[in-house]
Design a protein around this nucleic acid. Structure first.
Lengths: 203, 203
DNA sequence: GTATTATTGTACCATCCGGTATTTAATTGG
DNA sequence: CCAATTAAATACCGGATGGTACAATAATAC
């Protein structure tokens, strides 16, 4: 029995495709200049009226927050999963580097990391989006830290620095690589720089 | 004899203070979000009418180019001068780090580097400004390179990488530090990270 | 004093922005 | 068939933007 069909709602049927809007918006924020991307433009691109968008997401802040949450689920969480692997420290670190500097071969694929882009243009974001970004950031930092401490315990990571500082350093370098890619810099050079920056972590 | 007085120009005497406008604009672009700083706002702040500003600088692009040139003269060139010193490699590198992470103790002093800020918000800039930024960037990279090659010749720098790559790496790390400072991150942590990132260059 | 030259600021232009009031359309419940 | 409900899109709001037309002003040249 039960919710095969959800009771056939009351009023005029909804035609707005929430997921489609989020896909278009995520792609746009990821590839283009966040501060110069208007709600109007997004409405145009996914053929949705402005009041429709406001009904669904409340306001621009709401849309952006929904976008970053989608990004978190689809892109960031899989990365953080890598940190739970029992693979050797070196290997996981290399995986991180490879992942961060990988670029889909499609010509107009997004480059860099949407989270980092948003963090960099913090001033253009609303309250809710900012809060969500800070939350994700904290989450990531503690994931790095836990991974580093596990590696320390296994004797695979023993650089002369606190796990907290190392987590900050790794996050900073990966973020920097992401912005370089977003700015269009050469993928191989960026990767080489990351490896140099991490070289003292692996003896 | 001669140009004690410059011939007392013909028409209505100019009252617009070009230098004052440039000071105000440089300060503003340096401290605030470039993409959200309108010409109107700058006019308001230095009490100049909009047509006056357009007459002096042609357009927004012209103003920004004038600002970055002023910044180059007053801030960047002195840094590049450091690279001509005959001091040991380590010492000059440390000077670079200290300079990059120094923050005036005044509460509302600008943080980070205007050049890097502009490079990061490239999309908000006009043609002329972009060209000037690329020019400065090339200049800086070859200054780093020359310095590295001189240090190599003196046997003070011998990391296993080309001087070109090392120059790119150093520039990237210093730039990253500048954006972190601009974003308000802790000055001491940023400095510590820079030192770690450069640790493999000095043995 | 009058023409010439150059700089000034007011007041305006079209365009876009985020956000909303309002009317119209599509459906269910009775 | 008629109310109730929900979502739709048009058309608008005030305000900001980059940029300009234009008349007023202040000086020199003659």
């Amino acid at each position: 029995m039960s919710l095969e069909r959800i009771k056939a709602a009351r009023g005029r049927p909804k035609t707005l495709d929430r997921d489609h809007v989020l896909e278009v918006a995520m792609d746009a924020y990821w590839k283009e200049d966040i501060g110069n991307l208007s709600l109007n433009e997004i409405c145009r691109r996914c053929d949705v009226s402005k009041p429709g968008l406001y009904r669904e997401f409340l306001n621009e802040d709401g849309l952006m927050k929904a976008v970053i949450i989608k990004y978190q689920k689809e892109v960031l969480n899989p990365v953080l999963e890598m940190l739970n692997s029992e693979a050797p420290f070196r290997e996981t670190l290399n995986n991180l580097v490879s992942f961060a500097t990988s670029v889909a071969d499609t010509k107009d694929a997004p480059r860099g990391c949407l989270l980092i882009k948003m963090r960099e243009s913090r001033m253009h974001l609303g309250e809710a989006t900012r809060a969500q970004i800070d939350f994700i950031q904290e989450q990531a930092l503690s994931a790095y830290r836990a991974w580093l401490e596990r590696s320390q315990a296994k004797g695979e990571f023993n650089a002369d620095m606190s796990s907290e500082f190392a987590a900050t350093y790794i996050d900073a370098q990966l973020s920097h690589a992401a912005s370089q890619l977003a700015r269009g810099e050469n993928q191989l050079i960026v990767k080489k720089m990351l490896l140099v920056a991490f070289s003292m972590l692996v003896e």
